[in-house]
Design a protein around this nucleic acid. Structure first.
Lengths: 367, 367
DNA sequence: TCCTGCTGGTCATGGCACCTGACCAGTAGC
DNA sequence: GCTACTGGTCAGGTGCCATGACCAGCAGGA
């Protein structure tokens, strides 16, 4: 209420569940501000009685206030009330949500472009403005200074991170800035995230290739430590070792993302005496490189080599032969992302639990 | 809550669950009162999309309104609006700008997707809401009824038309609805429009192919009467006849847009005794089909056949060999489009003079 | 010193609202 | 008649919340 009252009377455009926890937290804040209690809060059970909610709910609300720095908690003792440190005034920039990307809008893949637009549509309906920020430097090895500059320059209620590196994620955790990953967290980091379930897709693809008789199947990924790619590799290995009585190592090829890089990777994998007979390819753009390169080498698809794409984009339909792939719904992706972003913008917190969307298998002619 | 309403304005003291059904019903009531819809309500599924709730929830809300006597419902037909149809406050829908497309957002090419998002960003900053409408029927031979239904259902200050047919354009001219073409006008129609200068690109490409010695160059287009494609053909012929002392007819191949259609077109063009040695291809998606089909036939690019793409999309960079093409700036496109749209929305008029953006030639390895 | 009654911390269980996807039947335009 | 849309219905799954129980730390009194 404190912040909303200062805004224009913006009626909610979308029905949404209002969690009891948030309501309770808000009521507690008001009571605190009114000076209802002096030094310590009453016990949890008494508060439950007073507000007619269950203990887990009340504890959620109290935890929220603790995170805001209004309460101090110790085992066995009642919660101490702290001086209300002026919380960040949700002023002019509370209505901006920023998206950080390593590449400009015109270069992002169609799937991402699509959910970005849907996200913007959702947010705009709720009165938020989505700003697209491009910064190469933030994706370098030492992103701290670039990130600090960026955040100072374009203040936002929430940062949505695209293709974020572990370094970026760590920075946001340390700075305690509200942020949201469009992707998967790096190892050891817990941030709210939305992503396609690449692990499941990889497992399914590897099992399929195995069933089809492929014993030399390769996974082709860009190098670098993206959480989603790590998951892909894990899923691929899982299915591989589960299928084989004598699990040989599956081939995992890492390239630098350039066309030449992908080509040389392929050439290595195809070298005798044990050439790869199947490729599971991450990133749709590289599927194009793989298919055209294989065709140029005179290999037939799928007779000589099988290809499966981990992701989907419109243009894959237009390749001949049609590419076997896993498709995800951008609408769902945008929906989950916008829900989390709005919650994060309004309350400052969002559930850490990763949201994973199950992709659908689409059979093509490349297996 | 019911009893509290009779009391003095007393802020809520207890947290309580508010059912989504009730919230949705309330929002529907407000939209109805604002005159958002005329005669009938949109379908349940569309409403669900709009309000981001599930069908059971939406049905609960609709049932509530039916009990209140505001709606009449019959199986198989849309819900009829009964009650006090307030006069449409023009303010309520003057802030909506609609975009009409034959294909869903997830299927439009990246370039279009990109300027769509940029357009939405511009409009949102000016307080407009961009709605994306998909309707196959409006792109059929007799679009009148479908267009009337669409326009009645989703009122908008301006309609932005994507891949519009001559029939659609004529309807908007006749109805005198404010509209704006993202594309080129059909013959004999004058509507404000923004498009890439395809004629210039085609002329340049044809001249280039001629200089390189190609005497059997083919233009590959989807069939149908799109203004932009007509311009492309005109430009291609212009350069061809200008170059040749004895102007033979340039090959113009029309296909149905499907992969198989493109393939059979190519096979025809490559047939002896005079096989085509170069293809100028409209639509990036079909460039993929062309390149992969040629490679599968064992043809070398560019040694045996040259390929030039009229348009650009991100993914063309990832083909090997890299495709020679014409690129346009989506930022410029969106900027011109939003300027015209906002002017049209605010004043009701926009200059008829077509806006044409000059594409840039990017040399690849396919010529 | 032990006991008792408070405090916060944690867990398993179950109910309920809601979401998802699917299928059916009626309607309308082609 | 066919197709694409409409409303009507249902089963299965998920997430939030309530309930009640148990544990561990802290205090004060017998």
């Amino acid at each position: 209420m404190t912040s909303r009252k200062h805004h224009a009377p913006h009626r909610r455009a979308l029905p949404q569940r209002v969690s009891l926890v948030l309501q309770t937290a808000q009521l507690l804040r008001e009571e605190l501000q009114a000076g209802q209690w002096r030094d310590h809060l009453p016990g949890e059970r008494e508060l439950c009685e007073r507000f007619q909610v269950s203990r887990p709910t009340m504890r959620g609300a109290l935890e929220q206030l603790r995170r805001e720095g209004r309460l101090d908690v110790a085992h066995g003792k009642r919660r101490r009330i702290l001086a209300p440190r002026r919380c960040v005034a949700s002023g002019s920039w509370a209505k901006t949500i920023s998206l950080l990307s390593p590449v400009p809008l015109r270069s992002v893949p169609p799937f991402v472009l699509c959910w970005t637009d849907l996200l913007r549509a959702h947010l705009s309906r709720e009165g938020f403005d989505l700003q697209f920020h491009v910064s190469q430097k933030c994706f370098a090895a030492q992103p701290a200074s670039a990130l600090a500059a960026l955040v100072a320059r374009g203040p936002a209620a929430v940062w949505v991170l695209l293709r974020s590196t572990a370094g970026i994620q760590r920075w946001f955790v340390e700075q305690q800035r509200p942020c949201l990953l469009a992707g998967t967290c790096a190892a050891g980091i817990e941030l709210p995230s939305v992503d396609v379930d690449h692990r499941a897709a990889a497992r399914h693809a590897a099992a399929l290739l195995w069933r089809k008789g492929h014993r030399r199947a390769a996974l082709l990924l860009p190098s670098g430590t993206y959480g989603g790619d790590t998951e892909t590799e894990a899923g691929f290995r899982e299915a591989f070792t589960a299928s084989a009585n004598d699990p040989g190592e599956p081939l995992v090829l890492q390239h630098d993302g350039s066309v030449a890089g992908v080509e040389s990777c392929l050439d290595v994998a195809l070298r005798p005496p044990q050439p790869a007979t199947a490729f599971f390819v991450a990133r749709t753009a590289h599927v194009l490189t793989v298919v055209t390169h294989l065709l140029r080498r005179g290999l037939r698809i799928p007779e000589d080599v099988a290809v499966i794409s981990r992701d989907d984009d419109v243009f894959l339909e237009f390749l001949t032969p049609a590419v076997t792939r896993y498709v995800s719904a951008p609408e769902k992706f945008a929906q989950r992302l916008s829900q989390a972003a709005i919650q994060l913008a309004r309350t400052g917190f969002a559930p850490r639990k990763p949201v994973r969307l199950m992709p659908a298998f689409v059979a093509g002619e490349t297996v």
